[in-house]
Nucleic acid binder design. Structure first.
Lengths: 188, 188
DNA sequence: CGCCGAGTTGAACTGAATCAAGAAACGTGG
DNA sequence: CCACGTTTCTTGATTCAGTTCAACTCGGCG
C-alpha cells in the first residue's frame, strides 16, 4: 500500500487523516493471468492501483482485437471513461500476467471527494495526467508513421517490447502484425 | 459572462461567493480573425472561454499544417498540456473568425484552486471531460477509416462542415485535402 | 511426439500520398 | 461593383505503405 501513498505524494501532500480515510477504502485482490478485469458492456466500478502485473485494454474483434493500451506496476488502471460516466464500457480489460491490485469503488471515491480536502485535487491531477497522455497519442497517430511510432515505443517504454506480444504492440501502433514484422526487419 | 456561469453550473453548484471570486479574475479580450492566440514555443498562460468565435489548433508545417482540433462559442480554449505543465507549447492556436474571450491566468487559477471550495472540483470535471474526448478520438483514429471519421463529423459536429475549410477538416481526419475531396465525391 | 499459437515471409491488392494541372471561390484594391 | 490575384477545391496519374490471404518456421506445452 506504501506504493500508492508514494505515488500520490509525488503530486500532493497527504495529511495523516486523509491517508487513513483513503486507505481504509482500498480492497486488495489477486487475479490470475489472462483473466478479465472488465467485460465489454459492463460498468466500471473500480479505480485500481496495480501492485504487480500487466494488463491490456482492447476492443474484442473477430480475429485480432483492437488493443489500444497497457498498464504496469505502480500505475492506476480503470476503464476511466466508463468509470466517470458509470455507463457501459465499449472495451475490455484483461491481465497479461498474474496481477495484484488495490481497488477503490466508485461510491467510495465519491465519498473521498466529499470528505477529504485533497480528494478533488488528487482526482484533478490524475485526470490531467491521463489527458496529457491521450493528447500526445492523438498527435502521434495523426502525425507519425507506423515506423516512427514503433521507434517511439523503444525510447519511451522499452519494457513494453520485452513483455508484450508483437501482435498486441502492432495493434497499439495501429497496424497488422505482418506489417510490424516487416518494419522490424527493415530497421534491424 | 453569464455563459461561463451557466457552463460551470451544468457540472457543479456555485456559491455566490465562489462565483464572485472566480469572475473577478476574468479578463475580456477581442481578437481579430487569423490572429495567433498562442505561438509554438510559447508557454500557455491562459485558460479562456470563447464568447464568440472559432479557433483552430495546429502544428505549423512547411505546406499544410497539422490541424488537430477546433473550439467554438461557449467552450474553453487553451493549449491545456502547455498550460498544465507551464512548458513550451508544441502547437499553435489561431482564430478563424473574429473572436471574443474571457481569460483566466495560470496564477489566478491556482489561487482559485487554493481559495475556493469548488475550484478543484471544477478543474477535475474539466480535465475529466477533456480526457474523455481525447480517449474517444484515440479509438476513432485507430479503428475507423477516414471515410467513417468524416461521416462521424456530419453527425456529431455538423457546424464544423459549415464554417471550416476542407483542408483543415482533412487534416483533422488524418488525410490530405485531395483524399477528402475524393471521399466527398464518392459518398454524395 | 505432435499440436497450436506466434512470428515471418511472399504475392496480389487497396486506400491514401504525392505530384501536377485546371476550376471555383474569395478578398482586396481600383 | 468589377477585375485580378491568391487561395482552396477538384480531378487525374503515379507511387507507396500497409492490408489481406496464404504458406511456412519456430518454440513451448500437453
Amino acid at each position: 500500500m506504501e506504493a500508492i501513498k508514494a505515488y500520490l505524494e509525488k503530486n500532493v501532500s497527504l495529511s495523516e487523516a486523509d491517508w487513513t480515510f483513503f486507505s481504509s477504502k482500498l480492497v486488495y485482490r489477486e487475479i490470475p493471468k489472462k483473466a478479465k478485469l472488465l467485460e465489454v458492456g459492463a460498468i466500471e466500478k473500480h479505480l485500481s492501483f496495480i501492485k504487480i502485473g500487466i494488463v491490456r485494454f482492447f476492443i474484442p474483434k473477430f480475429e485480432n482485437d483492437l488493443t489500444f493500451g497497457f498498464c504496469f506496476e505502480n500505475e492506476f488502471v480503470s476503464a476511466y471513461d466508463s468509470f466517470l460516466t458509470q455507463s457501459p464500457s465499449i472495451y475490455q480489460i484483461e491481465t497479461l500476467t498474474p496481477t495484484s491490485i488495490w481497488s477503490l469503488s466508485y461510491e467510495d471515491l465519491q465519498e473521498i471527494y466529499a470528505h477529504t480536502s485533497i480528494g478533488n485535487t488528487v482526482g484533478r491531477l490524475a485526470a490531467e495526467n491521463l489527458y496529457r497522455v491521450k493528447a500526445q497519442r492523438e498527435l502521434s497517430l495523426l502525425n507519425d508513421t507506423a515506423e516512427q511510432r514503433y521507434l517511439n515505443l523503444f525510447e519511451q517504454r522499452p519494457e513494453l517490447l520485452k513483455y508484450i506480444a508483437l501482435k498486441y504492440l502492432a495493434s497499439y501502433i495501429g497496424i497488422t502484425p505482418q506489417a510490424l514484422s516487416r518494419i522490424r526487419k527493415r530497421i534491424s
